[in-house]
């Protein structure tokens, strides 16, 4: 278990081999010779060493190149063409037409709006509930907390398509437990998944069920690095629980929260499986996300070029929305 402050995203408290900044922790716990790198004796040895490192990295690099970079380049290139599947030899260059079409299509804009609403709502609920539960768990005996956390973590291990199956049953107007409970509370007229005003919210609830455990796992790990003495000192000063939450816990969790917003936010932004399983994008496109929209354009309307443009728009929106968080967490590692 680490004792220092939580290290930042995309870096680690210990310097990687070859990095220039020194690290107090490492230097204090080990002698000067025991840096990460093995001391070089001969330059030919170092050369061989470097070659070996490249060879070890090569398979991973080739995989990322073949399965991510080249396909993304292909998607970008073909988004300027009109073509259908299997007709790649018969592409018509239309330049930006697909993008113009996207931003003038009401359904496309609706799916963009749906995705943004879904992401904001899901993030807000997941982080509030997840961090709240983690803070409560921290106040328990470690043994009890571990058992409860193990139970709470279960949904995150379940396939999203099974999650959508489970909740489709729960939301069933005739047999579902959601209506069973709502009826008893006198709220039986709830539209659920079949009403275009409530369907998206129902999917948010399902996503919160599925993804909050992930927040609990990460936030709990983040909380373990906050020294207990801080709370003891605050308690001696007569600080209330909410004050300790806002003045100790949350400020010290900032980095973890930024990482959570980045990872959970991008995850919510590309939502596909849950919507595919629960509503398929309906009713009346009220739950169509960008991923669902691009998917339908490709595999139902067979407009591959347009679908590529939609998927590139999805990627660009994600970069615009979450780029600042990525920059932020990358910058913190130098601080």
């Amino acid at each position: 278990m680490r004792t220092g402050p939580p290290p930042s995203f995309a870096s680690d408290s210990r310097p990687l081999a070859g990095s220039t900044h020194t690290n107090v922790q490492t230097n204090m716990t080990s002698t000067t010779t025991s840096r990460r790198a093995i001391p070089r004796t001969k330059s030919s040895y170092a050369k061989r060493d470097r070659r070996l490192a490249v060879i070890l990295l090569l398979p991973a690099g080739i995989t990322i190149l073949l399965v991510m970079i080249i396909p993304l380049g292909f998607a970008f290139y073909t988004s300027f063409f009109n073509y259908s599947l299997g007709q790649e030899g018969n592409m018509a260059f239309v330049f930006l037409d697909n993008y113009v079409k996207f931003f003038t299509d009401p359904v496309a804009l609706r799916s963009l709006l749906n995705t943004v609403i879904f992401t904001i709502l899901s993030l807000a609920f997941c982080i509030t509930i997840g961090v709240g539960i983690s803070v409560l768990l921290r106040s328990l005996k470690p043994r009890t907390a571990n058992v409860m956390r193990a139970i709470f973590a279960m949904p995150v291990l379940i396939s999203p398509i099974i999650v959508s199956l489970i909740w489709r049953y729960m939301y069933d107007p005739t047999y579902g437990i959601v209506y069973f409970v709502l009826d008893h509370l006198g709220l039986g007229s709830f539209g659920g998944l079949t009403d275009s005003t409530t369907a998206l919210f129902c999917i948010v609830i399902t996503d919160v069920w599925h993804a909050t455990p992930f927040i609990i796992l990460v936030a709990s790990a983040g909380l373990t690095v906050i020294p207990e003495e801080l709370y003891e000192a605050a308690r001696l000063d007569g600080a209330s629980a909410p004050r300790m939450l806002f003045n100790i816990t949350l400020p010290l969790m900032t980095k973890v929260l930024v990482v959570l917003i980045l990872i959970r936010g991008t995850d919510a932004f590309r939502v596909f499986d849950l919507i595919y399983g629960l509503t398929g994008g309906g009713p009346a496109n009220s739950t169509t996300s960008l991923s669902i929209y691009a998917y339908k354009q490709a595999f139902e309307n067979n407009q591959m070029g347009f679908a590529m443009a939609a998927s590139i728009v999805t990627l660009l929106c994600l970069i615009i929305l979450f780029g600042p968080f990525l920059r932020n967490s990358a910058r913190e590692k130098d601080a």
């Binding site: 081999a17 790198a37 490192a53 396909p71 998607a75 596909f272 991923s291 490709a298 998927s311």
Partner: peptide, 30 residues
Amino acid sequence: LTSFQMKGANTIAGGFLVAKLVPVISMLLP
């Protein structure tokens, strides 16, 4: 990335992380 003196190890490691954030649909279609 961890045991060798390699320039850019941090950048490469960060690149793997960014790769994880790419929307699945943007990879699937191409």
